[in-house]
């Protein structure tokens, strides 16, 4: 038997919250990037659940685009991490606040 849509939505909400917690709590840029991926995935789950329950394939197409954007985001994010690490030898976001007033 298929689980009702609420279950998927709650799971997605919890996942999203875990991702947010990761971004807030962690002090490692790479883990923060990974938490963002987690949040994107939570949203993907919502899209796919709605796509199934409303019987329209558009939700899945949107997830396809989310994946594209996630890939682009990860690539650019990691390139920034590499170049920052090269200059400052650190992955801690607290050491990257020169532009903060």
């Amino acid at each position: 038997m298929q689980a009702p849509i609420e279950y998927y939505l709650v799971l997605s909400a919890v996942l999203f919250a875990i991702g947010v917690a990761g971004v807030v709590i962690r002090r490692d840029v790479i883990v923060i990037l990974m938490s963002i991926e987690l949040m994107l995935n939570a949203v993907n789950l919502t899209f796919i659940a709605f796509s199934r329950f409303m019987g329209s394939v558009e939700g899945q197409v949107i997830v396809f685009f989310v994946m594209t954007v996630a890939a682009a985001e990860a690539v650019v994010g990691l390139a920034i991490v590499i170049s920052v690490f090269r200059f400052r030898q650190t992955l801690d976001p607290r050491d990257m606040q020169l532009l903060k007033w």
Partner: peptide, 10 residues
Amino acid sequence: VHRPAVSAEA
């Protein structure tokens, strides 16, 4: 999500 727009599977 207490009151979702759809309940049954399409």
